[in-house]
Amino acid sequence: MKRRRVLFIRLSQFKVFLKKLLVALVFISALALMMLSKADNLVLNKVNNSALLVLNPIIKVLQLPAQFVFGAYDTIRDIALVYQENKSLKKENLDLLMLKNQVRTLKIENRLLARMLHYTPPPEASFITAKIVAEEGDAFSHSMIAYAKHTESIHKGQVVLGAESVVGRVDDINGSYIRILLFTDINSKIPVMVERSRARGILSGDNTTVPKLLFTALGSDIVEGDMLVTSGVAGVFPAGLPVGIVSKISKDGIEVETITDIERLEYVKIVDYGVYEGILNMNGDN
């Protein structure tokens, strides 16, 4: 009588097979996640937001000792610079006093002219100050996470200002935490214009410290040292906000230097110019 063939698989072999299957599954899932994130998937965003709600408070606690160390370093450095700073501030104050008088005169003149033309001024901007709790920046992405107690009035796409200029836009909000996409990130595109000549272009981040000015018209009047301000073309950012200074013009492109020191950013202003509501209303009307 012929014996039946029985296939024996050792348990260890089965375990190895399962592990290989699991590894393959993880790779496939990771690739699928990347595809989904390109499509701005709602479920994925919710999962990410839930993770951030857990992780951000931990980072907030972890940064307390670091804050103490760097705070002490800042204090010592500030003391060393206090005499020089005081001298330059006195000079700046004199200039500002003169400017103040000029502004007052121009304001009155502007008000009179606006009344003559029946001009309706845009709504006043309101802002929320948020504290930076986490920063992330390498060759692959540039973003920050800020904390604000009340985030109800903050919307995706709103402009974020540093001490002196635009630093980015709101990318995501989860609870009290706001993810800010810096304008040096590869995903950032800001319509800008040269303040002096009104030449327009797109300021495009490329994950370096110097974003590039793209899509400028041939023969545009741009020179090194020109100040770039938002042009307000896309309707997301209001016009006239300072963004950066043209630092280098070469055949490879136009490099732009940031005005605000992003590395030393502790607080940001998330500004609401009513643009978001305006777009919503327009969509509602349509």
């Binding site: 699991l22 993880v26 990771a30 996640l33 993770a51 986490a134 992330e136 993810r179 995903n187």
Partner: peptide, 25 residues
Amino acid sequence: GIFSVVLLGFIGDSLSAVPAGLNIF
């Protein structure tokens, strides 16, 4: 194990602005 790797990658993905899944991969 693999779970630890996935969790570390997931945390990295959540905190950064790179596409989800990249750090896990």
